[in-house]
Design a binder for these strands. Structure first.
Lengths: 216, 216
DNA sequence: CGACAACTTGAACCTGATCAAAACTTGTGG
DNA sequence: CCACAAGTTTTGATCAGGTTCAAGTTGTCG
């Protein structure tokens, strides 16, 4: 249990459940609670009027989300069946008046949320499809603390701003290149040494073109 | 002066100046202060190893930035000569222990920073070049409280993830279509009625293609 | 087993990037 | 003040990555 979770648990809270695909809150709603994930996966997303959906974050057990002051700035939906802890915003604020630690942790949390989409912009804007996918898979595997990760195709596409077709093609290439091995239907394993090699190459400032050849 | 500024001013603070293009802080540095802009313009940016720079925010007088808990998650640079107020993080945190208002405002500020890049992803990923530019110009004009805005070409490109060439071409089209009128070297005016019309059309769910024809 | 949805594959297309060169600014020194 | 050099913005031509459309395949669930 994280520090923030510990601090928060002193505020008024209770458990809530959401089934897969259920809306937790919508963009623009009043923010009257913050959440912590106990079990499952949640996505934060922005729905464009042109039918495009942009997922800005995937959240996993232990993550705190919904730290908003007034309005929800994005929608939150359950990816899988989830169990959350819901903390009353009112109560959290009261508590924060007495706990400097909590304030730091809250700000840190809000800040982490900034960090993520900021870099997300950079990746989506400047990385070719294959690298975006690899970046995501690596992150996912890391985030889940193992070498493999569960993915739902459509969601990955909407996160990386790739069409399902492109994603499919890229995955084919990655498999052909041996960088990713399928593990059943939706799980996969990343060839760790290669990923590290790539990361090293990137840091050394090599041209993306060179490394991209490795996939095909 | 905003509420947050008022609250902050009770913390230890002093004025600092940065000249155009000067680094205020870099990504990864320890966060030991937060800033408020008195005069000038600041950009938050992420420098990709492939030489690409992604600007994630432009900030103007009154804006507070640098609300980070531990590490800087992006670099901050002065766009123009700027005058800032620098608040010691230590002092702010101490103060926040006594002022629930400040906590709310800090979180709100941190949250606003999240809001922005999250939507930024959506725009960069899903809008065609012309709409991106128009979106930015409209925002800029609105942000500066007038119909005209000062822009620096290169920065705009790095914000919208467009090459200078493309930006140039788009601007030509926009001028030809009468949507944007040059006002001297770097300033411009947006034809307000048309912008509103477009916004309305978007809300009504029209296909982007249709409206895009209007520019050419 | 059959129906439906999700995923995959192929082909054509299109937007924006890149490369290269010209026009224009800006700055500097005689 | 003019001439020249350096840097930007613009323009043109070409290229390529990713989207779209359409059809086929696979997998899932009733």
């Amino acid at each position: 249990l994280s520090d923030l979770a510990n601090s928060l648990d002193q505020a008024r809270h209770w458990f809530v459940r959401y089934h897969s695909r259920q809306l937790i809150y919508d963009e623009g709603e009043a923010a009257n609670a913050i959440f912590r994930i106990r079990e499952g996966c949640v996505r934060l997303q922005i729905n464009g009027r042109n039918g495009h959906r942009q997922i800005v974050a995937f959240l996993f057990p232990g993550d705190v989300f919904g730290v908003c002051a007034l309005e929800r700035t994005s929608a939150a939906e359950a990816v899988t069946d989830t169990e959350l802890v819901r903390y009353s915003m009112q109560s959290v604020l009261q508590l924060s008046a007495h706990s400097r630690e909590l304030v730091v942790q809250l700000i840190q949390s809000a800040n982490g949320q900034f960090n993520h989409p900021a870099h997300h912009v950079e990746h989506v804007a400047h990385l070719p499809a294959a690298e975006r996918v690899l970046w995501f898979l690596t992150w996912l595997a890391h985030r889940q603390g193992r070498r493999t990760g569960e993915t739902v195709r459509r969601d990955v596409g909407d996160f990386l701003a790739l069409s399902p077709e492109t994603l499919s093609r890229v995955m084919r290439e990655l498999k052909a290149g041996g960088l990713v091995s399928p593990r059943g239907r939706r799980a996969f394993a990343i060839r760790q040494p290669l990923v590290e090699l790539r990361a090293g190459a990137e840091a050394a400032g090599e041209r993306p073109e060179e490394s991209r050849q490795n996939y095909g």
